[in-house]
């Protein structure tokens, strides 16, 4: 398995060099969004209104962090299960979203949209939330503060460890990995 270091936001070139199983360390700016924020973003798109963030090249991290202790940047922050975002994802990919960090399988429609839009789906280790939080250097809420843990946060991350699950060539680590170790 290859180790790669990437700077976010991503370019088409970055994405084209990733294949399933790659261990990637992401540094730079990413945004959080989970169920309720996705619903609001897609409602804005449907109405033709402006989004609270520019999606071009961005990575969305599906996470609802726990509250930060005094003096801490953020609370524990591991990925949530991604399929709940599937209904909204193709619309965001069409708007330029390049990467997603979550955990668990995506729908066929999302996988096809990932290929069509030259994007990538990463998994972070679910439950390794205290460790992940240490790689987040800055956090600020930029939209929907009323949603509490579901608000959109802008995060500055340093070497956030993720694994490529769905690459831009249509491969799926969950399917191939499971086949390899079935007995």
């Amino acid at each position: 398995m290859a180790e790669k270091y990437l700077k976010a936001p991503l370019t088409d070139q970055d994405v084209s060099e990733l294949t399933i199983g790659d261990q990637v360390y992401i540094s730079g700016i990413i945004y959080t969004a989970r169920d309720a924020a996705h619903k609001r973003l897609v409602e804005l798109l449907d109405k033709g209104e402006e989004l609270p963030l520019e999606l071009e090249g961005q990575i969305l991290f599906y996470v609802g962090p726990s509250p930060a202790k005094p003096g801490a940047v953020i609370g524990s922050a591991g990925p949530t299960t991604s399929y709940r975002m599937d209904a909204y994802t193709p619309a965001l990919l069409d708007k330029g979203l390049k990467g997603m960090i979550g955990k668990g399988s995506r729908s066929q429609e999302v996988k096809e949209s990932i290929v069509k839009n030259k994007a990538v789906y990463f998994a972070a280790v679910g439950g390794a939330a205290a460790l992940t939080a240490q790689r987040i250097k800055k956090a600020e809420v930029i939209a929907y503060p009323d949603l509490g843990p579901e608000a959109i946060h802008k995060l500055e991350v340093e070497n956030l460890p993720v694994i490529v699950v769905n690459d831009s060539f249509g491969r799926d680590l969950y399917q191939e990995g499971m086949k390899k170790y079935q007995s």
């Binding site: 398995m1 199983g21 261990q23 996470v63 609802g64 962090p65 726990s66 202790k69 801490a72 609370g75 524990s76 922050a77 591991g78 280790v125 679910g126 439950g127 390794a128 939330a129 205290a130 460790l131 939080a133 240490q134 843990p149 460890p161 694994i163 990995g177």
Partner: peptide
């Protein structure tokens, strides 16, 4: 990859307990 994941989980448990923060968000 599986071994790496398990190692991360053991490390995560140690960080959570040392810093008294939730092991999972």
């Amino acid at each position: 990859t599986g071994v790496k994941v398990l190692e991360q989980l053991v490390e995560n448990a140690a960080i959570a307990s040392a810093n008294q923060v939730p092991m999972c968000q």
